[in-house]
Design a binder for these strands. Structure first.
Lengths: 189, 189
DNA sequence: CCTGGATGTTAGTGAGCACTAACTAACAAA
DNA sequence: TTTGTTAGTTAGTGCTCACTAACATCCAGG
């Protein structure tokens, strides 16, 4: 029991993730949503509006750190693994919106700000704080905590969005596990 | 003293990196290249041809590992730093072509293969070999060498191409230096 | 049964785009 | 001078696309 609007939004984000803004046509979206083109315009007014709504609809912003804080153990490897898993599942949920935004950020400046910027940046800040605390506890080597924070986020981001062909035989969850291990080992005091 | 063709190719890749395939118009490219639109078609026949030529023109494939082999020291941190620096400068050179290919890989399948795939994959394979050798020498912990290889490449890739805003205050070369240090520390036996 | 709101259908408009044709201008080699 | 090459200009063709107008249909609630 999906509403008409939902059907259209879903079709739109799907096609946008595949092609680019200009390449996707309203006719195409309507067809994919099993809806007449008119309906689409009646609901969203313009192609631009529709695509903006679609990206917004599928951009999930989660207060990820709240979950982290509840389960934090102040053990580097365990905590990093937790964060990596939560973050990657978040990215996976947002994958299509991310892909679209990455390609078409010019078209949706304020959405880019909201989804691609705020989300990872606030996570980065929390990570930096966490690393600082770990350093204070003498559990982590002395580095500018921004470096591991950014490096860690990059690795996770690419593990989901990146040129997956590179990973090839590697199982994704296995990759996280081992990568986190190496990371934690490199940071441990 | 750049030839007409060079001027066109440069303008083309520049605009393609900003917008997407459909959004860039031949008129626009011609104007940016200070050339009449006709000239563009006379040289390249079609928009598709032109953009393909542009991406190819600015896709530099370097036998990076030859340089690495000459300077290899079998010291994890030093070697990784060398590789990171070489790889990042390669990415930086290819940045525009990479950006275009990432967005428009559908349009240039064989170029994607050539630039985005072969290059990093061959590098990955060399890295895996290198790690294996280091393990054999007892200088590295026992992990599936694919994991650090892929993770390392991901980090470098994003350090150049990624959401740069994240790095913000961080100096790029400083970031490499420290990140490599952490990585090497995590792998050292 | 009637009415209103959501959807479908059809036909079309106007704009922008890739690409072409036909002709001209500049210039350099023979 | 002649000729070939390279580029510019202008005008235009045909297509696709976002978007609209006008009308038809379906169906639920009163």
């Amino acid at each position: 029991m999906t509403t008409t609007e939902e059907k259209i939004l879903t079709a739109a984000i799907e096609l946008m993730a595949e092609k680019d803004y200009q390449a996707v046509t309203t006719k195409e979206i309507a067809k994919a949503a099993n809806v007449s083109e008119m309906t689409l315009f009646r609901h969203f007014g313009s192609k631009m509006n529709l695509l903006e709504a679609a990206v917004e609809r599928f951009s999930i912003i989660v207060p990820l750190w709240q979950t982290v804080e509840k389960q934090i153990s102040w053990n580097l490897e365990a905590d990093l693994l937790l964060i990596a898993q939560l973050y990657q599942s978040l990215i996976r949920q947002n994958k299509k919106a991310f892909t679209v935004l990455y390609k078409e950020s010019k078209h949706f400046p304020h959405l880019k700000e909201k989804v691609m910027y705020k989300n990872p940046v606030s996570l980065k800040n929390h990570l930096v704080e966490y690393f600082r605390e770990m350093q204070a506890r003498g559990q982590m080597i002395d580095v500018n905590p921004e470096v591991p924070a950014v490096g860690f986020l990059y690795m996770n981001l690419n593990a989901v969005l990146g040129i997956n062909d590179l990973l090839s035989q590697l199982d994704e969850s296995e990759f996280i596990l081992q990568a986190v291990r190496i990371f934690a080992r490199g940071l441990k005091a």
